[in-house]
Design a protein around this nucleic acid. Structure first.
Lengths: 355, 355
DNA sequence: TTGTAGGCGTTATCAA
DNA sequence: TTGATAACGCCTACAA
């Protein structure tokens, strides 16, 4: 039998340290929390005791004692799409659980693809009222500046879903979108019938870094491995189902022999409508993004053939963990925070509850 | 801005309840924990106060106060395979984290496919020393009886990876293996070249319920959707790479024109060796199970085409959460505990750290 | 520069 | 059947 915990003996506490170091509880606490007013020789002794005993602080007890409350705020794009709705749900759900762990969550919708609006909201945010922000939005200089500013005022910042690498954001929570695009390409290549094929790519906006990266990855794989497949220019649906639905007829007039569609952004409702109304359903291989009630239904009925997805629950939970760690300047457990690129076929779709 | 937490006001505590109900802390605690010695009229009043205030107990504080320690034990099959090794790792890793949350984890290897050994170990387990067991093993009457017995003695039981539905186990942590097999079938069908194909299925043991279910699901999909594909009888590798490697030549002599292999169990090392040494690499479509260093490498080099997997980290964490909930007779958050059927292509493989 | 004492929310012991 | 009261491990006035 392999025991994996620390040796059965109970873990040392601040009291043990105080005793061993020959100082009081208060002094131990000062050293533990890097507070001033302790002679370096004393600090030395306390540290040695900590080392010797292998002490590790009990965070739960610490939080209980200090009554600390974390306040995190999410900024999400204001577009009618199920993916964002799912993020909202996850935030609401998680916050119910977290309210018993001294963590408060809130979110706010920001006009989509509108860097100015985002920058303004960020700039106006009160560092006294928020410990961390998660941003799902476009990457532009104004947003970048706003982030750098709010960071200086002590607010932790996480980029969500779409990275903002040019900014000082503390972390990015989301998938590798190039790899996601490559995965879509691989599936598309295998699912298309043999012979020559033409594939239409639907994107959201050139401002959205995630969309750009997906297209890039998709093209890479098709070029590398499927020389019979031609990828057509993107059509830009702005994550808007209606706009998308109105654009599709034009694309099919231009190229009637489309055999595959890579829907790399949101707005699947428009695509599904179009396909079904024009009887293109089942005739075209479709690879989409994000498992939602709609896309799930499309998969179920073979309107979609595969879906690339990211778990919204995991996204939100990971964001909170990261924001907490950053707020306490604690290290992050990278492997745990890595968001997977999920692949769903009809066969392995999880049940409806959305996970 | 949407605030999702409980209204900013702090949450009520036992003190508030005591005050409102007009009783002492101790009485509140008795009611809260269903302890005897309280008049039903008093219980009534306390319950009303709890309701009115919307009280929810602070688990961290409760655990702190009672100094409760959870001891969970994992029984894993003793076979040299990376999947089990990964489970062991995850147990070890998680227990480092959990040692600061009053939870001790241990594991033990049980001779594989040996119901007697498993039953014996279970029967000998001391309920004084363990609060819960997780069992990854075969489903037989003897094991079932041993489980029912130990459950009666107050130990919580979770079936891990392979379900034991005939027993009184509290819960099953793992994937839907029929769906996993179906997913493998779907991928196999699409990845095989067009025209007639013969697919070999490698299984572990007829005693392993997970293996049986995968084969079942695989056959279903092939029959339903790919009529040009013929599925050959299983070969039984007992999760042993060497045994498997020694069996493969025979299978290929019997049926030289095999174009696909579904490796539904462990022992991939043997399969990979065989394929590479016989230059069958890249000529045969291979769908395997479990992302491990070996299978990852095979995917990387196109020896394998797709892998169906389950996250060992998630399996272990979920098991612990469930075991904890069961030990405290608390409800389980089903959606959170659902284990996904992961699909990996070369393109969406997560980085090496094993998540 | 250091220590004492009280409190965070819950549980548990003992006496009333 | 109930209620004080002292833990649990940590933090934080305030005092020395």
């Amino acid at each position: 039998m392999v025991k994996t915990g620390r040796d059965a003996g109970l873990k040392p506490t601040v009291n043990d340290i105080a005793r061993v170091a020959g100082v009081s509880l208060a002094t131990v606490d000062r050293v533990l929390n890097d507070r001033p007013g302790v002679r370096s020789i004393t600090i030395e002794r306390v540290h040695r005791a900590i080392q010797d005993l292998g002490y590790v602080r009990d965070t739960a007890a610490a939080n209980l004692a200090r009554g600390r409350v974390y306040r995190f705020h999410f900024l999400l794009p204001e577009s009618e799409n199920e993916f964002v709705a799912s993020l909202e749900n996850q935030i609401t759900e998680l916050s119910k659980v977290l309210s018993f762990e001294r963590t408060q969550l809130s979110f706010e919708l920001v006009p989509a693809f509108d860097p100015q609006a985002m920058a303004q909201i960020l700039t106006r945010m009160d560092p006294e009222e928020v410990d961390g922000v998660a941003i799902f939005g476009p990457e532009t200089p104004s947003v970048r500046d706003a982030i750098d500013q709010i960071k200086k005022r002590g607010v932790s910042v996480v980029a969500l879903v779409s990275d903002l690498p040019s900014s000082e954001r503390d972390y990015f929570v989301g998938i590798d979108n190039i790899a996601a695009g490559r995965t879509a390409g691989q599936l598309m290549g295998h699912f298309l019938p043999s012979g020559p094929n033409k594939v239409l790519v639907i994107t959201g906006s050139m401002l959205a870094r995630d969309h750009l990266e997906r297209r890039l990855g998709f093209d890479q794989v098709i070029t590398e491995s499927f020389d019979q497949v031609e990828v057509l220019p993107s059509i830009e649906g702005r994550d808007d189902p209606d706009l998308l639905e109105s654009l599709l007829p034009g694309a099919f007039e231009m190229t009637p022999d489309i055999t595959g569609i890579y829907s790399s952004a949101a707005g699947n409702a428009g695509l599904i409508n179009f396909l079904r109304q024009n009887n293109l359903d089942h005739k075209i291989i479709v690879v989409g993004h994000e498992l939602t009630p709609l896309s799930r239904n499309a998969l179920e009925h073979d309107t979609f053939n595969a879906i690339i997805s990211q778990d919204t629950g995991h996204l939100i939970r990971s964001t909170v963990r990261v924001l907490r760690a950053k707020s306490d300047s604690l290290p992050i457990n990278l492997p745990q925070e890595r968001i997977r690129i999920d692949v769903y076929l009809k066969e392995n779709m999880p049940p409806i509850d959305g996970r």
